[in-house]
Amino acid sequence: MLKCSLDKINSVFEEIAKTAKLYIPADDKDGSAVYKQWENGIEWSSSLNTVRSPKDFFLPQMENLMEFKTEGKNIEVIDNRCETEDFVIFGVRACDVKSFEVLDRVFLSEPVDSYYASRREKGVIVSTACSKPSETCFCKTFGISPEEPEGDVTTWKTEDEIFFKANTSKGEALLEKLSAYTEECDETVVTEQKEKISAIMAKLPLKDLKTDAFGGGKTEEFFNNPVWEELSGSCLGCGTCTFVCPTCQCYDIKDFNTGKGVIRFRCWDSCMYSEFTKMAHGNNRITQKERFRQRFMHKLVYYPENNDGMFSCVGCGRCLSKCPISMNIVKVMKKIGDVDA
């Protein structure tokens, strides 16, 4: 275990930024946290988490996949993919680190998505333990440890110090570079903080939320539950929950004609949108009920069925605080699963 005084944190950032693009959560003008590329003057936010999830780093909201040039009847396909530069994301919370695993299972399974894979290989994830979780947090429900998040490097932040532990070779290489600023130390302080976090987690309002009722193979059990009608009744059909969600990965591929050529791009899509499954001759999810059901069934049943029981929710709580009408996965789990918490 290594440690470093928080006074020196900007020097640490500077050191990292010498060889890789560094992104840290920083306060935006309106006070909410957002990942910003570090440069002198950008301060590490004290907020619990960013409004947007860090999935952007691996699956950007919009990216160009390829271009086409057309001339008469001919088409030229231009593959202008390029390797991502090395980058480091600092201060990622336990839930978000886990969300990368959820995305990996989709994008790194065959056939591998080369766009995603390239970024995933070049990115180093530095996580930070959650010393002050919010009432909307329920990562423990999914077996995630906010006391000791995963990631290439795990850090713990106290009043005046920051502690580092490398978990992977990528992480070790990063800490190697920081050796001028860090010193060896024992785990006393970190253990203390972990205990504190555990004590807080036990006080959170959603601490008793369980996933036992859900998982693969439960489609029949939940699909025709009349409660979907009631739950989806207030849903506006906007895409807020899906766009702030770190694990929502559905995308759309569209063409944009620039007048000089055609760009084929990929952008986030939302199963909550009415035209998500609309085809030329029909739509198999006609009302908001079916779309709403799809989102939660996907997270709680379909995804685990295809991924060894892993849920496609990490309990980050973003949808709890951002849904315009406060309908969210916790309310769904409690109602549908009849889980008493």
Binding site: K29, R52, T240, P324
Partner: peptide
Amino acid sequence: NELSRCIRCNACRDA
């Protein structure tokens, strides 16, 4: 600065 933060979630429109 303000509009570049938009994530096109359509919440404004749908509400």
